[in-house]
């Protein structure tokens, strides 16, 4: 009986360890990164949805024509294909995609890349889906943010990208200065 209890305790502790590994990894890689993150700025439009449990947040949409992108070979116009978008900066300092890589191993150690989805089709080749689609804000601020952008202007989303771990963290969402 005692042995069984010990075994169960060990099993549960291992389970708990496995559960805690992921959050610990996220916190450590963002709070104590091995190398400083590189910040990229994206032009985004926002709108304010409501969810009974999530509360208010703003839905982000990177302006399609704001990110320069390389042409892709025809063979890569697949539906829902995911790719690594290697990021660079354009003349104005905003993020641009320098190339797409379908194999993570081919990415350079110092290259900043985020995983994007490719809806497919040559017609809308700029319509890449970025992984950051929500920005959580206070429930009063969300409708205010949406109202500010009624004239068709945009906001700037600053994203920190960690080259080695391939992680990213959204830093801030600010109006255009």
């Amino acid at each position: 009986m005692k042995q069984k209890k010990r075994l169960l305790l060990l099993m549960y502790t291992l389970c708990l360890g496995a559960i805690l590994y992921y959050p610990a990894d996220v916190i450590c890689s963002i709070e104590f990164p091995a190398e400083p993150p590189v910040e990229f700025r994206f032009k985004v439009t926002v709108y304010d949805p409501y969810d009974p449990f999530r509360g208010r947040y703003v839905q982000l949409a990177v302006k399609e024509d704001s990110v320069m992108m390389p042409d892709l070979p025809q063979s890569h116009y697949f539906t829902d294909r995911t790719a690594w978008a290697v990021l660079g900066k354009d003349a104005e300092g905003f993020a641009c995609i320098t190339r797409f890589e379908f194999d993570r191993k081919k990415l350079g150690d110092d290259e900043c890349a985020i995983r994007v989805k490719w809806p497919g089709g040559a017609q809308n080749k700029n319509a890449v889906e970025y992984p950051f689609s929500r920005y959580y804000v206070n429930e009063q601020k969300a409708p205010e943010l949406e109202n500010e952008l009624r004239d068709g202007s945009y906001m700037v989303l600053t994203v920190q990208v960690f080259a080695k771990t391939r992680r990213y963290a959204v830093k801030s969402l600010d109006p255009v200065k």
Partner: peptide, 22 residues
């Protein structure tokens, strides 16, 4: 409780660090 606790922690962490994911 352990499973829902894990689910809550992972979900809220991605909210705290604004990491959306799928």
């Amino acid at each position: 409780l352990t499973a829902t606790g894990a689910a809550t922690l992972i979900a809220l962490l991605s909210q705290i660090y604004q990491q959306n994911g799928a």
